[in-house]
Design a protein around this nucleic acid. Structure first.
Lengths: 63, 63
DNA sequence: GTGACATGTCAATGTTCCTTGACACTACAC
DNA sequence: GTGTAGTGTCAAGGAACATTGACATGTCAC
């Protein structure tokens, strides 16, 4: 699962910590998802989509 | 996380086993997701969306 | 009433997600 | 140089996801 988190975060000039705060997860979780160590849970994916105001499909994509 | 799996499956007249086969997961996993025991992983949610030809947001919803 | 299918659920096990706490490195300000 | 912010990564633990195998129930055809 690839994702556009890093770009979306950069567009908004948010640090990993700032995004983590908005998502109410740890900074390590944001970093792990961004660097592809694992995928977010579905509920977290929904929160990420909400924070960025985009559908899940425009943030995450297979492969 | 609520979901419309049971209805979507009924519309297509698929058994839980038939859906599980298409998703390449166990029947128990389909049942557990349908009955709300837990949420699917993000990759599985994508496969579910693909199988039904719908965006994730039209199958799963918060609360 | 026996057989086949569909569904719900349980136990036990393994993997993945998410946590806290820590350490290293870079870059930039002071 | 010292301090601070940002990022990447590790270890260890707990919570959530997914598995196989099994058993119970109900329905429907035959």
């Amino acid at each position: 699962m690839k994702n556009r988190l890093k770009v979306l975060r950069a567009e908004r000039d948010w640090s990993q910590q700032a995004l983590a705060d908005r998502l109410e997860v740890s900074r390590q979780s944001v970093n792990a998802i961004e660097t592809g160590k694992y995928d977010p849970s579905l509920p977290l994916a929904f929160r990420i989509a909400e924070v960025f105001g985009l559908p899940i499909e425009e943030i995450f994509m297979p492969r």
